[in-house]
């Protein structure tokens, strides 16, 4: 187990380096793509104690903060302007409160899960829960990993004996060029995953993908013959021709149609996204036994909506871990 380097001290250093509010937001998003639940709680604790005190000590009231924010909003749009330190401190505290709230939505204490190793675009997290282990291979999309901060996703899966292998690729490129520095295309990624599975002696293997990672998760699930494959808001068109070609198939539908019967496939999407609705219709045409989960009143980032509605945990249980609970969601299908 590696010692955590994502500590409150690191947050302080990042905070001091950021001059504008957008820079701080970017640093916080970068952290959210890495943190474990315990790290996130520790940083939130630190921010709420250390950063909230400054404005209070200096008698900076919410009235002044709101007044200054309104004034800044009226300024002409233009070159980046430095934000006063106290405004960034307020931003930090709001972020910390949001991070804590999102983790608390699981209704459980911090999941006992640690970052085990990091190799370029691949990060392995391992829960400390003993028992027959599940390997969860996550194909992150362009947008904030799994449609939610990584620590929130880990909070919902990490109380089980699970290893979470999170894969990321540069924005806009997708998985056709592999996961640097581990692989150079999609088939070599699958070969590497097979070696991870073989070496790990796992009881179960599941694939998860969101947005641009959705189709790769379904294709990997089919080719690796995993126990469950789950996609949310999959981009059916993204690199589909190249993906199929790399896998030696005419279309991605041919690969999906060959998914083993033992692989339980689930696809979720927000019904407000026409693009995702069409994508799911297309993919489901090759997956007649797939469970389709339309998420009512949700757009592309539908999983985060489920977290906020406290409906994500039951979906994780049924789609990834084989629990036989009834579908907690209801909305008209495509």
């Amino acid at each position: 187990m590696t010692a955590s380097y994502l500590t409150p001290r690191l947050y302080d250093r990042l905070f001091d380096r950021c001059v504008t509010e957008n820079q701080l937001a970017q640093a916080q998003i970068a952290l959210e793509n890495r943190l474990t639940p315990a790290e996130a709680y520790a940083i939130a604790d630190h921010i709420e104690s250390a950063y909230a005190e400054g404005p209070v000590r200096r008698r900076i009231t919410w009235l002044r903060i709101e007044r200054d924010r309104r004034r800044r909003a009226k300024e002409p749009i233009g070159a980046p302007r430095a934000a006063p330190r106290y405004l960034r401190a307020v931003q930090a505290v709001q972020w910390a409160q949001g991070a804590r709230h999102q983790l608390d939505l699981s209704g459980r204490p911090a999941a006992p899960i640690d970052r085990l190793w990091l190799r370029g675009g691949a990060t392995m997290y391992r829960s400390r829960v003993p028992g027959p282990r599940t390997l969860l291979v996550g194909f992150a999309g362009n947008l904030r990993g799994f449609m939610m901060p990584t620590q929130v996703f880990l909070q919902f899966v990490g109380e089980r004996p699970v290893d979470v292998l999170k894969l990321e690729v540069p924005r806009g490129i997708g998985y056709i060029r592999g996961v640097a520095p581990i692989s150079h295309d999609f088939p070599s990624t699958l070969d590497w995953l097979q070696s991870v599975i073989d070496d790990g002696g796992y009881d179960r293997v599941v694939t998860v993908g969101t947005s641009g990672g959705g189709l790769p998760a379904l294709l990997a699930g089919s080719r690796l013959g995993v126990d469950a494959a789950f996609a949310a808001g999959p981009a059916a068109q993204m690199n589909a021709v190249e993906m199929a070609s790399q896998l030696g198939a005419a279309t991605v539908l041919d690969v999906l149609a060959a998914t083993p019967e033992r692989t339980a496939v689930t696809i979720a999407y927000g019904v407000l996204s026409l693009r995702d609705t069409e994508s799911v219709e297309y993919l489901a045409s090759a997956l007649p036994t797939a469970r389709i989960v339309p998420v009512a009143d949700a757009d592309h980032a539908c999983l985060f909506d489920l977290v906020q509605r406290r409906a994500f945990a039951p979906l994780v249980a049924t789609a990834l871990f084989g629990a036989g609970t009834p579908d907690p969601l209801a909305a008209p299908g495509p």
Partner: peptide, 29 residues
């Protein structure tokens, strides 16, 4: 139809790539 997080990513990119600074809540401006 940007949600708050999409708007934030959009503003970060505008600032990083083009040096145009705007807060996510003001994207409509």
């Amino acid at each position: 139809r940007m949600d708050s997080l999409s708007a934030m990513e959009f503003c970060i990119a505008l600032e990083n790539t083009w040096g145009l600074s705007i807060a996510p809540v003001d994207v409509g401006r």
